[in-house]
Every structure is written in C-alpha cells, then in structure tokens.
Design a protein around this nucleic acid. Structure first.
Ligand SMILES: [Mn+2]
Ligand SMILES: [Mn+2]
Ligand SMILES: [Zn+2]
Ligand SMILES: [Zn+2]
Lengths: 156, 156
DNA sequence: TTGATAATGGAAACCATTTTCAATAAGAAG
DNA sequence: CTTCTTATTGAAAATGGTTTCCATTATCAA
C-alpha cells in the first residue's frame, strides 16, 4: 500500500533527482515541514521544526535548501518587511493559491483568496505574453498590497 | 515665476508637514534624487547620489527617510533578492506605474507596463473590496513575476 | 561494494540595517 | 528677528539574518 503515512514520499525525491540533485535526509525533512504547515515560516522557524526530529540538521543547510527550492520554482520567498525572509511551498501547500495584505506597521500579513479566479485568468494571459516579449521563463509570481491593518491604523 | 528650477519645490515640504513632520535639507535632497531617477536605487545608491551635493548627509538619515516615505505611502520598497532593499517613488516618478519581472538567477529586474490598463481596473476593484473586508488601509501594491531571464536560462 | 563528488554542519565572516546619543536645526510663538 | 521646544541628524557601534569556508559525510551510479 504505497502512499500511506500522509503522502510523505509524494515524489520529492524524483523532483530533486530530476533536476540533477540528490535527495537527502535534511532535504526530505525540510520538504515535510513545508508540506504540512500553513504558516509563513522563516529559515529559523523551519530549522527549529526540523530540529525536533533530526537534531543534527544545520541551519546552513536549511538556507541552502530553501535557496535551491526557490531556484527550482517549488517555493516562493517572501519579504514582509520584518527583516527575515519567509517561505511558502507552492505545489501541494496547505493553503491554496493566495496572495497577501502586508501591514507596514506591524509587519504582519493577511492571506486572501478573493478574486483568485479572475486573477488567474488575467495572470495566465500576462504570463504568456510577458515571457514571450521579454524572453523570460516565468516560474511564479507574487501580489502584495501594502498598508495599515485594523489595529495599526487606530494606534496612529 | 514660481515653480522654476525644475519643479524642485513641487510641494514635498507640504507633504511632510501635512503628516506632522519637518522638511529638512536631507529630506529634500533625497526627494530630489528619487524624483529624477528612473532606476531602482538602494539606500546606499541614494546616499552616494545625495553625497555629491550635500556631503554631510549621513547614510543613517537616508535609511530613516526611506522608512518614513514608505510609511507615508510615497515610496515603495522592493526586494529583488540581491540582499539590499530598493526604493521607487510612486507619485511623480519618472517611469509611470509599472511592475517587475525578477530574475532569480542574476537578481536583475525588468520593468513592464503591459496590461497596466486591465490590471488597474482589476486592482482597483480588488483594493476596494479587500480594504473593506479586511479593514485594511491599502496604500499601494506590487506585482512581481519570478523566473529566469534570457541570459540566465542559457547559462544553465 | 566502491568511488567520485554532491551535500552537510559548525564556526567564522559578512554586511545591510538599526540603535545610541550628544549635537543641531526646523518652525511655532512672541 | 529672537527664543525655545523638540524633531532630526550624523558618526560610531551594535545587531542579526544570511553567506562563506572547509574538513567530514553521505548519496547513488557503476
Ligand atoms: Mn501565504
Ligand atoms: Mn521599477
Ligand atoms: Zn499592522
Ligand atoms: Zn538573470
């Protein structure tokens, strides 16, 4: 009965090898953490999470793997303005496709999925034309609205 | 004949004072640099540019002013992945409203203005509904497509 | 099982950004 | 114009997320 234990081995290994990389314990465990969360984890967040199970995985490796995943287009790296990068798995992520409202006051982000349908239609067309016109191989995208959240506005 | 000398005093002072801040020489000179460029300047870029004319303005002040401008919603802060933030004036910027294709290889960015009309329509509607639904005071937004540019793709 | 080499972890280095604090200057009041 | 309050500033030092180094280890094709 393949595929039990929560789809843990859902083919990440193949994905890595397909790109000429090796599948390792640290990489697998990082993918596990990313697949399960629905938060915006920083490198250190991921490191601590992985550390619970494999206490010998280093923070350096977490950074390296995240960079690799970003290059592979499997992960998006976000900057919400709080001084550390945050990462989200695209394929197979808990939250579906979504975007963010980012508060420039408290640096928190709110996910929204409104307009995703209209947006998808629009983005698909844009992606196609832009990649042709600028000879650009588009892997993914972000949309972020900046402003003040409820709480930060009244604090003003 | 008011307003000569290239619209230098195009009311930035009023903008600052209107928000309860003072207009100072460093702030004015930073606005001057931002108004004239059509590049994506980092804090240090701006510092060096300002330094040519006011050699006593400090890098710290540049950072502080950029933070202020971002909070005021006059400037957008970008992260193109090269380890330093980049800033663009919104109102009165040389390039009009536009977005970016960001290469995850060489970290360079390409501006595009295609689809801006359709996009504006879409974004206006989104902004209105999102700010109501999430009680969020939206100041501005970014859209970025990530991928590999022409050169970085063939290097692979 | 073996060998070539990709990948790793820990420590040190890096460096963009922030903090500190005494000195300065904007601008309201008179 | 002069005075006074205090927002603003510059230089230096501190901060801390991320990267670099390098000797050791583990992956996986043969
Ligand atoms: Mn998210
Ligand atoms: Mn731009
Ligand atoms: Zn907030
Ligand atoms: Zn490139």
């Amino acid at each position: 009965m393949p595929g039990r234990r929560g789809m843990r081995s859902s083919g990440w290994g193949g994905k890595f090898r397909g790109c000429g990389y090796r599948m390792t314990v640290p990489r697998q465990s990082i993918m596990d953490v990313l697949s399960v969360t629905n938060k915006h984890l920083s490198a250190e967040d991921i490191y601590m999470e992985v550390h619970k199970i494999y206490s010998n995985v280093g923070l350096t490796t977490v950074y390296r793997t995240l960079e690799l995943l970003t290059q592979m287009g499997l992960v998006v790296k976000f900057d919400f303005g709080d001084g550390r990068a945050r990462y989200e798995l695209i394929e197979g992520s808990k939250s579906g496709h979504h975007h963010h409202l980012v508060c420039t006051g408290c640096k928190r982000s709110i996910e929204y999925t409104d307009f995703i349908n209209e947006e998808t239609e629009f983005l698909e067309r844009a992606e196609k034309e832009l990649s042709k016109k600028y000879k650009f191989d588009i892997k993914n995208h972000i949309i972020q609205f900046y402003g003040l959240c409820d709480k930060c506005r009244e604090k003003k």
